[in-house]
């Protein structure tokens, strides 16, 4: 069997999600990684159980987005005839996977947290309350995988690198991207890939300083509740929850967040959950492994001092 993964990059650098996808795909067969980019990007693939790398250097992906990426992946599929295709679960990744499933007459499973040797996928549904195993029964097993779901196998890779040119069809050029603004990350790790996420909500009252300081001391990413993104205190790209990101870090710290079901939908599968909230009745405490009933403006600075003390 052969498996194809779509390599993930962030700020032009290969991200650890790539090795995670390869780790799962390698259980099902020999792994070919597709890079939507040039050979310099392809040359960055140096870790993970990857046999081949195919670079599809197509500027159309920047100009036409998902539709052009579908054409590029379809060309790779035509060449490689994989049994399994793994793509990271992001807005882009899921749309790409969905359109490819339509185009190749294949089944689709989204947001998997594990993939077995026979391509059975594990999903955590209903806010993490139910584990579902499912299997594609038609065509290629197209599965999108949540970042941070497996420990990546980081053995050095020496893949054979090739390039592929694929034209973009006229229908894939119907929607044209006229400008792009990259998200502001402020040097912090990618939200969905971070091992630690510290989030702030309405309780920050717009002042994220203690949240950011604590996150930076832990090397974590900063997230936000919808109340915080709606107020414009933090960008929408950092929203955790049903209509934001789903995160599954080792540690999630919710600060001044009440724990509405829509917020919990995005963080409930985190390994350890910590909550800091003034209100002892806040629903976030129902899912917290450790809760501090108190003012985040007192608790977080003290915790930050505690980390500094441990480091020195």
């Amino acid at each position: 069997m052969s498996a194809v993964i779509l390599a993930e990059f962030s700020d032009g650098k290969v991200s650890k999600t790539t090795a995670e996808l390869a780790t799962l795909a390698a259980r099902t067969g020999d792994v070919t990684a597709v890079v939507l980019g040039n050979s310099q990007m392809a040359a960055q693939i140096l870790a993970g159980p990857i046999k081949k790398v195919i670079a599809v250097d197509n500027a159309d992906v920047l100009a036409y987005g998902v539709a052009a990426a579908v054409d590029a992946l379809a060309a790779v599929i035509a060449q490689e005839s994989p049994k399994v295709l793994l793509i990271a679960s992001s807005a882009f990744g899921k749309e790409l996977a969905g359109r490819l499933a339509v185009r190749t007459n294949s089944g689709l499973i989204t947001d998997a947290v594990d993939v077995a040797a026979d391509a059975t996928a594990t999903q955590l549904v209903f806010g993490g309350s139910t584990t579902v195993h499912s299997k594609v029964s038609h065509g290629i097993s197209i599965i999108t995988v949540r970042p941070n779901s497996v420990d990546p196998d980081l053995t050095p890779a020496t893949p054979e690198v090739s390039t592929l040119t694929s034209p973009t069809s006229a229908t894939s050029q119907l929607a044209k991207i006229t400008s792009t603004q990259a998200p502001v990350k402020g040097g912090r790790p990618e939200l969905t890939e971070a091992q630690i996420v510290v989030s702030g909500g309405r309780g920050t009252n717009g002042d994220f300083t203690p949240v950011e300081t604590f996150a930076d001391l832990l090397g974590g990413a900063v997230g936000a509740s919808r109340a915080a993104t709606d107020a414009g205190w933090y960008p929408h790209s950092m929203q955790v929850g049903q209509t934001g990101k789903t995160v599954s870090p080792q540690l999630y710290v919710a600060c001044g967040i009440s724990g509405a079901i829509q917020h919990r939908a995005g963080m409930q599968t985190s390994k350890v959950i910590v909550a800091i909230n003034k209100d002892p009745e806040a629903p976030i405490f129902e899912v917290a492994d450790f809760g501090v009933v108190g003012d985040l403006f007192a608790v977080l600075p003290q915790a930050s001092e505690g980390i500094k003390a441990r480091k020195s």
Binding site: G128, Q268, I273, V274, I276, P280, F285, E286, V287, A288, D289, F290, G291, V292, V293, G294, D295, A298, V299, L300, P301, Q302, A303, S304, E305, G306
Partner: peptide, 17 residues
């Protein structure tokens, strides 16, 4: 997910965390 430990911040909540 069982509810875990909950402490009242009596001035040392950050340290307890």
């Amino acid at each position: 997910r069982g509810a875990g430990i909950k402490v009242e911040d009596g001035g040392t909540g950050g340290d307890a965390l």
